[in-house]
Design a binder for these strands. Sequence first.
DNA 1: AAATATAATTAGGCTTACCTAACTATTAAA
DNA 2: TTTAATAGTTAGGTAAGCCTAATTATATTT
Lengths: 197, 197
Amino acid sequence: MKTYREENYLKAIYQLTNDDKNKIVSATEIANWLEVKPPTVLEKLAILVKKEYITYNKFDGAKLSLSGKEIALNIVRRHRIWETYLYKELKFSWSEVHEIAEQLEHVNSDQLIDKIYDVIGKPDFDPHGDPIPNKQGKLPKSDRRPLSKSIKGCRCVVLGVSEHSEVFLNYLTELKIGLNDKLIVEQINTYDDSMKL
Amino acid sequence: MKTYREENYLKAIYQLTNDDKNKIVSATEIANWLEVKPPTVLEKLAILVKKEYITYNKFDGAKLSLSGKEIALNIVRRHRIWETYLYKELKFSWSEVHEIAEQLEHVNSDQLIDKIYDVIGKPDFDPHGDPIPNKQGKLPKSDRRPLSKSIKGCRCVVLGVSEHSEVFLNYLTELKIGLNDKLIVEQINTYDDSMKL
DNA sequence: AAATATAATTAGGCTTACCTAACTATTAAA
DNA sequence: TTTAATAGTTAGGTAAGCCTAATTATATTT
């Protein structure tokens, strides 16, 4: 029985881990992320531990087990497939898709996901540039590096964004920065690390 | 706060009423329909009464108020729009759409419903031939009559089915009876009222 | 190291949505 | 019309998910 909540807790742990094996995901951090209080999280973590979806202790935080990661990646997969579908097929804007996908990802029908994945042409990345895990929970490879690590004169291509808030995405649209756009780092301001692109 | 459950109870009452003003929808009937026990239903009915979505007493059963009916029809609207979308755009079969639509109908995004309603061409009827209520909760007119009321020699067109189970729909497919097909009632067996079409 | 701040945990409470068992009212049958 | 069957209701219980308040651990300052 993977419930809607359980899926969300596992997804939260996955997202907060952020691919860093050593990242400690604390109960408080999860609580802030899901906008609930720490005791609520602790309670749920105990259940997830019992079901062997995670391990948890106060020093190492919460870590996904193999089966837990599988569930989390499946939700991430659904989320990103829906985002892509909404963006490409239903013409939603880059900044609108997240919230709707947040609901659609919990609709339980592999057939439906297969179908829409097919329609969008089985891509490896979603409209934010994030990788779409395959059914087995494997992520496609990519060589994304954060723009903040680039040096002056660097020519690069926008592969994705790591901040998904509407404000930020609208800001990018205003700046006319979109996916797959080419950028040149013209100048880096040493004062606040802002860049001229 | 219309929760997912509340929506389902209101929809159940709507469906069991079946357009018949005098139909008495008892708690037990709702319980069977939703596969829960009568006390569970009673409890919820009390809440729905307090919220003025329904009236209820043991003799008249549950009846939707105007606002209750509005909510119920909105869910029905979503359900039928999704069914049509799944059938026409995603090429699901007539018998598969119901179960998936049952989940999708609770996704809360008017924008999304508007979009897919647009894509399917704003039809008045779903693939089962059932009418799609408009945003204001008005049902489009149609002159459907049950086939069982037809007489010998009657030439008719399949506008819809009143039984939605997969077994029945698959049976129809096997008989090569589909929506908008023309039928002629050739013979009516007086023994069991079965027909040769 | 003591004092303070922050994080983790425990205890106990609330609401929703379900249940069973027991009781009462209504309806149908003998 | 009394009896039996069925429907409606009440009482009381459980589990999930949330909460606040209080307590205990750990970290950070001074």
